[in-house]
Design a protein around this nucleic acid. Structure first.
Lengths: 230, 230
DNA sequence: TATTATAGTGTATCTTTTACAATATTTAAA
DNA sequence: TTTAAATATTGTAAAAGATACACTATAATA
């Protein structure tokens, strides 16, 4: 059987780009400039080219919309239902990316081919989405929470040097619950994945907090959170 | 842009079918009857048809080789490297399936199109595999172990009624370590996912063990194993 | 009835998690 | 210079969960 003996599905990648801006979990969406779903918001994505791997395709999409290249990127799931695209049979491989607060500053969002607008949306105020992107996004959120509890992905949201309060804050935002400060610190420090720089954060008008760096591997499995406090 | 404006990758599913036979973890492989890799062993799989979802394709492949339909089936990962298939650009979506000891008896393995032989291989004695199937299989094994520690997938290997010793045995095989009997039972029973039938296993020539049934949802996340004993 | 083979059970110790509030350090204002 | 404001930092006792460890129970069979 040759590869082209019968009709084949098309393949796209869609990428869920999360960041924490203004103490909220946000996702990057693009406004479609072509049918189908012209004028509607969607996850950034596009067809996989014949000469690029899936991950390369995801990175290319990420770069096209944001201009950045080095981020945490992970394959999420492959969605292959028959009716997900009105144009025909399209299978999409979802990826999710986490952007650090450092990179967020640098990013210049830019529309690209077939896209008339790009912007961040708070996960609490999402617009109606194209295709099955609402399901894909819901799945990504579930995975993100899980990853926060069981791995070290959280650090991909932080700059190189950060305070324990900043770390706790992002946990509280993503897990959507308050954590006890003493227990959180005890637990995190006991994991042996942080090293104190001896510097202190300088631009605050109160007791300056100590800065730490992460010494583990991002995404490594570590049981971070049991329940921790209230 | 129309769907066919430029060359698209082909899409296959490959399925990792695990079972426990003769107290060993085994995987079902097929012997390829066509190029590429003619005469070599490979994971069962094939092209996704235009009119079937990914999961349907995986179920079809499963059914073609084994004749069974109802098993635990889960999407594993999508492998999309450029050089994984010498025929050209082929993306494959991996699925893994777990077959219960009940079903194992019923199965009649059967060769199908492009397949000259089908058989179970112990994970300890694998043949050389085609394509990147060695990597896919290694990934599947890692996932299986993880699922045993954190979810209830283990029960998909067991018949409806089973003894605690049988349950412990499959944990020991898959995790490849001995567990303490008292701690294992204490932990499993404390999860509240088992119900005792009042029957006892009858065909043994010693004290007959009690039979239990699983009352949870297969695959549900539950922290089964901390470390449990030696 | 004695043997064989596996089923079934309890407890003390250690580790981890939880709940909970006072002191320390800096800047800025009085 | 002192005081107020803001956030950082720290400890402990109780509860829950994990671990290590060995003997008794029950049925079939010799």
């Amino acid at each position: 059987m040759a590869l082209k003996d019968y009709p084949q599905p098309s393949v796209t990648v869609d990428i869920i780009i999360f960041s924490l801006k203004e103490k909220k979990l946000q996702v990057l969406l693009v406004k479609r400039d072509k049918e189908p779903f012209k004028g509607k918001w969607a996850l950034p994505g596009g067809f996989v080219r014949i000469d690029e791997s899936l991950e390369e395709a995801a990175k290319r999409e990420l770069h096209e919309e944001t201009g950045i290249k080095e981020v945490y990127l992970e394959q999420l799931y492959t969605f292959g239902g028959l009716k997900r695209d009105p144009r025909g049979r399209v299978i999409t491989v979802g990826y999710f990316a986490l952007i650090s607060s450092e990179d967020i500053e640098k990013i210049k969002l830019r529309a690209s081919a077939d896209v008339s607008d790009v912007r961040w949306f708070s996960m609490q105020k999402l617009p109606e989405l194209s295709f099955d992107h609402d399901k894909i996004l819901a799945y990504a959120l579930k995975r993100l929470k899980w990853k926060f509890e069981y791995t070290t992905v959280a650090f991909s949201f932080l700059p190189k040097k950060f305070t324990l309060t900043q770390l706790q804050e992002i946990y509280e935002i993503v897990l959507n619950k308050e954590l006890d400060k003493r227990n959180f610190r005890k637990k995190i420090l006991s994991l042996g994945i942080l090293k104190t720089t001896k510097e202190k954060k300088k631009d605050v008008s109160h007791r300056p907090p100590e800065l730490y760096t992460f010494t583990g591997r991002i995404g490594e499995i570590v049981e971070i959170i049991s329940k921790i406090g209230s």
